[in-house]
Each structure stands twice: as structure tokens, then as C-alpha cells.
């Protein structure tokens, strides 16, 4: 593996970890979910890099698309029910 591809892999891996950390620490849940979807799309690229196109397809369709839709739908329902997004030590980083 050439140094350049390894550098690109390292860049991708670093972005992946950073986006995951930001998604979990986001102050607003909406931001967190949006970043989580971005995280899923980055995972899709990683699957292709790991020569696993089947997994990439499954991740893009099920892991990212549907999970994102599920999370946003649940958040909308949670807000309608009047539960606060944040309380206590959430999102204070």
C-alpha cells in the first residue's frame, strides 16, 4: 500500500472518529442526528475502501438512510410529547 493511499485512509479514519465524537457531544439532538447520518455516509466510504461493496450498500441504505429517518421521526415525536432535548449534563462539552 502506497504512502499516499495510507495518508488518505488516515484522513478518512480521523474524520470518522471526529464526526462520531461530535455527533455524540453535540449540544442539540438535531445536530447530533445529522452528524450521525454524516458518520454513516463516511462509514459507507470506509466499506468501499475495505473492498466490501455489499456492506457499503447495506450501510448506505439501511444503516444510514433508514436509521436517520427513524431517529428524526422519533425526535419529532419526542418533541411533540413535550420532553426536553437537554437536561443535566447533556451536551455541555
Amino acid at each position: 500500500m502506497s504512502a499516499l493511499t495510507l495518508l488518505l485512509d488516515a484522513l478518512l479514519a480521523g474524520t470518522l472518529v471526529w464526526v462520531a465524537a461530535r455527533a455524540l457531544a453535540a449540544a442539540e439532538l438535531v445536530t447530533g442526528i445529522a452528524l450521525f447520518i454524516a458518520f454513516g455516509l463516511l462509514m459507507t466510504i470506509v466499506w468501499v475502501r475495505l473492498s466490501a461493496p455489499d456492506v457499503a450498500l447495506a450501510e448506505a441504505g439501511i444503516g444510514t438512510g433508514l436509521t436517520g429517518a427513524l431517529l428524526f421521526a422519533a425526535l419529532a415525536r419526542l418533541r411533540r410529547a413535550g420532553a426536553p432535548d437537554n437536561r443535566g449534563e447533556n451536551g455541555d462539552e
Binding site: D54, A56, L57, A58, G61, I62, G65, L66, A69
Partner: peptide
């Protein structure tokens, strides 16, 4: 297409189901 393609290239029931689900959503 994904369902049919699964036999010889990336694809298959789960991917096809996910795309169907996207349409349903």
C-alpha cells in the same frame, strides 16, 4: 435489480429490502 444482481455481484435481499423501505418511507 439489486435482488437479481445479488447472485453474481454486490446486492441481494437486504439491499433490495432497504431500497424498498426507502420508497415506502
Amino acid at each position: 435489480y439489486l435482488l437479481w444482481a445479488g447472485a453474481h455481484e454486490p446486492g441481494g435481499a437486504f439491499q433490495a429490502g432497504a431500497v424498498l423501505a426507502a420508497a415506502g418511507v
